[in-house]
Design a protein around this nucleic acid. Structure first.
Length: 665
RNA sequence: GCUGGCGUGGCGCAAUUGGCAGCGCACCUGUCUUGUAAACAGGUGGUUGGGGGUUCGAGUCCCCCCGCCAGCUCCA
């Protein structure tokens, strides 16, 4: 979408002092209408201002066009004001919360005794159209005192709270713009009557005639300030675009995107299923899905073996003492399944594998010569997720992680962490994953009860992580407050087709738990030292990673991952036996091949298997059987005929090399 | 968890104000023997997610439960 929008900064102009922006632009014959029309300006301090703004000194500004991302956001912001006005017109007892534009549209939150129904949305949309048809002006008004604002918002308790709890002192005088200006936006009829008003930073369009097309999409609940202990609000979502065509394009693109939803494809391709008798969030991997899992796991084992990892197997539950030692009790209790009591002892299902691996480390004495000591396990963990948070395979209550722990000396830590980052690069590159970003999650020093309290350890762990990240040159975003209770995290964040973000991989530098567990090694000088632990899971969990790959490939997996690689189709049922023999031979060579000897025409079979995203179809008739050749047809369109042995070797090579693309040889 | 919306053979859907549970695909059987994205005919399959209620009569209305979807992360 953004590629079609023009660059905000590309048009600049110098505004004289003492004249409104709109007057200056009109005098210069600058268009306000149409896609490239100017909707607002941005000063060099990054603050956006209305066209009614009157600079008190000559100022150079960037012009914000309607078709820029910033311009569209302003249109959506103004549209949500109209929506809120419509809501208060139709349901006068409704109180206002906040109403920002979003990446895909806008919403407004309301404190309301009414839960808005789909019918309400229809009525509201009608009311909005009426308001726009009548025509209104958006006008900014800066208040002169806090008392004025309190009076102005006397009927709006949530607005009063926003005013009272504003993090920086309000500015009142002159014509200030930005987060610290206490301003209201009035919706005025063309004869100047104030129809509605809202506490707002702005900017807004001059006039409803500069709005685009809009639609209200759905209503849902949201908590005031995102806090589930606070008031539950009614949120109405909508979206707006410049014109009908852009809206339609958005809706079709969205529909196309949702066709790739792993839940839909998982059903169609028989990858996994859920059964209420098993429990919510507890997936059943079907044979096809299990193939993908096993292939990924095999790859990870080979990779880890080449880097000196050893494999271990540990149980899925343990006594509570272990989790007190690890700090999961109490720091992680909310995410754990309830305890299990047996023979007067209390057990918990494990929410993480690390405590078990620490016990593996501790089971035998270690010397510096054993380090780095790397233990890996595809370990299954169980976490309690609130029912409303579950989402297909992306978010489950039981999942299996590509987990490993690296125990190393202080000196080795940065290098080991870098090796882990390089491992990610290798995996992602080979799988063709480019759409992701990284987050360095550190602790929020103001909220200490979520984290262990050794100040010095936090400083060191954050220094190691940050140092390795900077050395790797991979760009990252900082998330204050997102750290694990035992250390800072580096997460690889991916996006599902529904637009939600998930951590595909998570890695931590941990100085805390080795000390808790009393892990030591004999250093070269003969002293006992505490190792550093690196937690790493480059392929995350099978559940999340396979769902991400399913969406990424739209179900058309690379040959090596495809659950069904080859279907052999006889030209007529005369050749059923021959087709079966070909399939058997390919299967025996290690390929996932089967013959389709069902009662259907060849063309129908080809269509069926193409739709099931099977990468290779081999057609067998008299010629092929006589000459021992294979007529190969790729799902992507290519085709060729070659001796069967050659085709077999070629496909085995493609699978063995884990090639992303299968092409004609 | 909370708010809203959903739940009809394996899958996708239909069923007027409450009035005979239907269609397509898949599946099974048969006919046809066909060269790279849908041959034709016939057939099996449902306590309409589960339970309770209202009614002469419930897929449809009411209540409870189970499950699925969206949102609760975009901070005037």
């Amino acid at each position: 979408m953004s590629s079609r929008l023009s660059d905000v900064a590309s048009r600049r102009t110098i505004l004289p002092a003492g004249a409104s922006v709109v007057d200056t632009l009109t005098a210069a014959n600058v268009l306000l209408n149409g896609p490239t029309g100017v909707i607002a300006v941005q000063t060099d301090d990054g603050v956006e201002r209305d066209l009614t703004w009157v600079p008190d000194a000559e100022t150079e500004v960037a012009l914000i066009q309607r078709d820029s991302p910033a311009g569209l956001a302003i249109i959506r912001h103004s549209t949500t004001h109209i929506m809120a006005q419509a809501v208060q017109n139709l349901f006068p007892s409704t109180r206002l919360a906040i109403g920002p534009p979003t990446a895909e549209g806008f919403y407004y939150d309301f404190l309301s005794d009414r839960n808005f129904t789909p019918d309400d949305l229809v009525a509201l949309e009608e009311e909005m159209r009426r308001l726009v048809a009548d025509g209104q002006l958006f006008r900014r008004r800066v208040l002169t005192s806090l008392a004025d604002a309190e009076a102005e918002s006397a009927q709006e308790p949530l607005k009063q709270e926003l005013i009272a709890t504003h993090p920086v002192p309000w500015r009142f005088e002159g014509d200030p713009y930005g987060d610290d200006a206490l301003s209201y936006y009035d919706n005025l009829s063309y004869d100047g009557e104030r129809k509605w008003t809202d506490l707002c930073r702005g900017p807004h369009v001059l006039d409803t005639k500069y709005l685009g097309v809009f639609t209200l999409t759905h209503a849902a609940a949201a908590y005031w300030r995102g806090d589930e202990k606070r008031e539950q609000l009614q949120r109405i979502y909508g979206t707006a675009f410049l014109d009908r065509k852009a809206l339609k394009t958005y809706l079709t693109e969205r529909e196309e995107r949702l066709k790739r939803d792993h839940r839909k494809l998982g059903e169609e391709l028989d990858l996994f299923t859920f059964d209420p008798h098993i429990g919510r969030g507890l997936p059943l991997w079907l044979p096809n899905g299990t193939i993908i899992r096993d292939e990924l796991e095999k790859w990870a084992r080979e990779t880890e073996r080449s880097l000196g990892y050893k494999r271990v197997v540990t149980p899925a539950l343990a006594k509570e003492d272990l989790y007190y030692l690890s700090g999961h009790l109490p720091y992680y209790t909310d995410d754990m399944y309830a305890p299990i009591s047996i023979e007067d002892e209390t057990y918990y299902l494990r929410p993480m594998n690390c405590p078990h691996h620490h016990m593996v480390y501790r089971a035998r004495p270690k010397s510096y010569r054993d380090l780095p000591y790397k233990v890996g396990e595809y370990g299954t963990v169980y976490r309690f997720e609130k029912s409303g948070q579950l989402q297909g395979l992306m978010r489950t209550r039981g999942f299996t992680q590509n987990d490993a722990h690296i125990y190393c000396t202080d000196e080795q830590a940065e290098e080991q962490f870098l090796e882990v980052m390089r491992m990610h690069e290798m995996y992602y590159q080979q799988l063709g994953i480019t759409d992701f970003h990284m987050v360095l999650a550190v602790r929020d020093p103001a909220n200490t009860d979520k984290y262990h309290d050794d100040e010095e350890m936090w400083t060191r762990a954050e220094a190691i992580t940050r140092g390795a990240m900077e050395k790797s040159g991979i760009p990252f975003i900082l998330d204050v407050g997102g750290a694990a209770h035992y250390g800072p995290k580096i997460d690889f964040i991916i996006r599902s087709v529904t637009g939600r973000e998930f951590a595909a991989s998570t890695n931590q530098v941990d100085l805390y738990t080795p000390k808790q567990f009393g892990l030591t090694y004999k250093a070269s000088d003969g002293t006992e030292k505490t190792p550093i632990v690196i937690h790493r899971a480059p392929l995350g969990s099978h559940e999340r990673f396979v769902s991400f790959l399913t969406e990424q490939y739209g179900g058309a997996f690379p040959f090596w991952l495809a659950p069904e690689q080859i279907v052999v189709v006889p030209v007529t049922d005369t050749f059923d036996e021959g087709a079966q023999a070909v399939a058997d031979e390919l299967y025996a060579a290690g390929l996932r091949a089967e013959a389709d000897v069902s009662d259907a025409r060849m063309q129908a079979k080809i269509r069926t298997h193409s739709m099931r995203k099977v990468p290779v179809t081999i057609v067998v008739g008299a010629r092929e059987l006589e000459e021992r050749t294979a007529s190969v047809r790729l799902r992507t369109g290519g085709s060729w005929t070659a001796p069967l042995d050659e085709v077999k070797d070629y496909l085995l090579t493609v699978a063995r090399d884990r090639r992303l693309v299968l092409d004609t040889p």
